[in-house]
Every structure is written in structure tokens, then in C-alpha cells.
């Protein structure tokens, strides 16, 4: 579904991605883990077109998106959330979710300007779809509140709803468990699995909370210093000496 091949990215002398390669299969939930500064978020920014890699290739469903712009990639069915919640503070929760449906409304500029009947119909359908998605995420009660009035954890859930409402083929989640309590992390893990089973969405999950990674992911890729150092099922990868050395630490198994 998503293929990253030999991708490198530098900011001046700083090499943040170094010949990194991995792939995300159709309907798979893949964890991307590693220490801070490993290049995980940079990888996500490269995949979504925010940064353009100096070398390498990214393919989405077989189509080269390496040089595509962020909105073009989103229109092709790849959506993401951010490490810090980026809800629009000037819109209500449901309007934030409706934004996920915006790229191609059935009416054009002139239709919007004169208020054609299509406008009302599309807006009502978009609101309905967004409410259903909020309901699915357990956030329908907050629909009319401004996005900025929610707690950090609630904003993360709304952000996931916004990314999901257009039924993307690929969803990238950047540390969605930040700000969630342990029981909410378990609920989130169930949701992530449900996203895969109910919508058939492939998911790339960046996460430090290993509880979530183990619960949701069938495969894990580990990055360190811009390179992919391990790729496999969670148990095998977390037992890899390089992963223990660079990320988990020797006390990881003693504690778990």
C-alpha cells in the first residue's frame, strides 16, 4: 500500500533520514518506534509531502508521490494526525471534522457564492458523515464545542476522526497516545484495530507507549539516527540487541 524506498533527508549538514526503506501492507497496522531524534516524524513529514527527500522514492498504491504536494497526497487517500494536536481553534469540533471532507465538494465557487441547492445538500451530508464519525470515536457530545475547548487527549481523538472521515486508504498516526490515561490507551488500541477491520485502512503508528504498540501493531519498524535498524513482529524486534541498546534499554525486559 505504501512503499518507502531508500529515502534520505538532510537539513544542511544534519542528516535526519539515511537511506531508510520499509513498506506498509494493505490493511496492516505498522508501528514505527525509536528514540527521540530517530527521524520518525521526519519520515512522516516526507511521506505526507511536507518535506521533499533528497533521494529515494515513496509510492502510495503503486503511484509515485515523492514530489507530490501535501494536499495532493491527502486527496489520494493518505491522511495523518500530528504530534501536537492541530485542530482549528476558530471552528467547532464537527466543523473541524468536516474539514476532512473538503477537497472536492459537489459545488464550486459560484455555487457557494449564490447558495445553490447543492450547497445545502452537501453541507448537510458532510455534517451527517462527520457526526457519525464523531459518534464512532465517542466524541459526538462535543460536536458543537470549539476545538480549542477540549482537553489534549480529546483533541487527539477529534483529529483522528477528521483524518478518518474521508475513509482514507492509509492513515498515519503520530503519537496518538500522548495525553491519554492508561485505560484510554487501551481504548485507543481497540479503536485502531477497529479502524483496520471496519474501514480496511492501513495504519502507520508512531508511538513511544509500548502498551499501545503491542496491542495494535502486527509489525514494528525501528529507526535510530535516521536509519531503519529493525523490521519484524513486535516480540522479535523488541528482543533485537540493537533495539534494546538504542531505544528500549537493558532494563526493559527486567521491568516487563
Amino acid at each position: 500500500m505504501l512503499d518507502i524506498r531508500n529515502v534520505s533527508l538532510s537539513f544542511g549538514a544534519l542528516k535526519v533520514l539515511n537511506n531508510a526503506s520499509f513498506s506498509l501492507g494493505k490493511g496492516e497496522v505498522l508501528g514505527l518506534i525509536g528514540p527521540n531524534g530517530a527521524g520518525k516524524t521526519s519520515m512522516m513529514n516526507v511521506i505526507t509531502g511536507i518535506h521533499r527527500p533528497q533521494t529515494g522514492e515513496i509510492r502510495l498504491g503503486g503511484i509515485d508521490i515523492t514530489t507530490s504536494k501535501p494536499h495532493e497526497i491527502a486527496e489520494r487517500g493518505l491522511r495523518r494526525t500530528f504530534q501536537t494536536s492541530l485542530l482549528c481553534s476558530g471552528m467547532s469540533v464537527v466543523e473541524n471534522v468536516m474539514l476532512g471532507l473538503e477537497p472536492q465538494p459537489a459545488y464550486g465557487f459560484w455555487g457557494a457564492l449564490v447558495g445553490s441547492p447543492k450547497v445545502r445538500q452537501w453541507e448537510e451530508e458532510a455534517r451527517q458523515k462527520s457526526m457519525e464519525m464523531l459518534d464512532w470515536m465517542g466524541m459526538a457530545a462535543f460536536a458543537d464545542r470549539p476545538g480549542s475547548s477540549l482537553s489534549f487527549g480529546q483533541q487527539r481523538l477529534v483529529e483522528i476522526a477528521r483524518a478518518l472521515v474521508s475513509r482514507p486508504s492509509v492513515l498515519l498516526l503520530d503519537e496518538p497516545a500522548v495525553g491519554l490515561t492508561a485505560p484510554r490507551v487501551d481504548e485507543l488500541a481497540e479503536k485502531i484495530v477497529s479502524i483496520r477491520t471496519e474501514f480496511g485502512t492501513s495504519i502507520l503508528l508512531i508511538e513511544h507507549v509500548m502498551q499501545l504498540v503491542f496491542a495494535a501493531c502486527s509489525r514494528v519498524v525501528v529507526m535510530n539516527a535516521g536509519e531503519v535498524i529493525a523490521d519484524g513482529d513486535p516480540k522479535t524486534v523488541t528482543a533485537d540487541p540493537r533495539v534494546v541498546e538504542s531505544y528500549l534499554g537493558r532494563g526493559y525486559y527486567a521491568e516487563s
Binding site: G49, L99, E102
Partner: peptide, 30 residues
């Protein structure tokens, strides 16, 4: 006409690029 326009998806796009253009683009807003 302008009031009508800002009540549609165009209005949401305007506000989205004002509040956070990166998030707007990631959601398909040109």
C-alpha cells in the same frame, strides 16, 4: 454572497489556512 460563501466549505478552508496551514494541507486543502 460573501456571507453565503464563508458559511460553506470555502469558509472552513479560509479559517483552516489561517489557524494552521500545515494541518489544512494534510487534510487536502490546497
Amino acid at each position: 454572497m460573501v456571507r453565503q460563501l464563508v458559511r460553506t466549505s470555502f469558509g472552513r478552508k479560509f479559517v483552516a489556512i489561517r489557524d494552521n496551514s500545515v494541518a489544512a494541507a494534510a487534510n487536502g486543502v490546497n
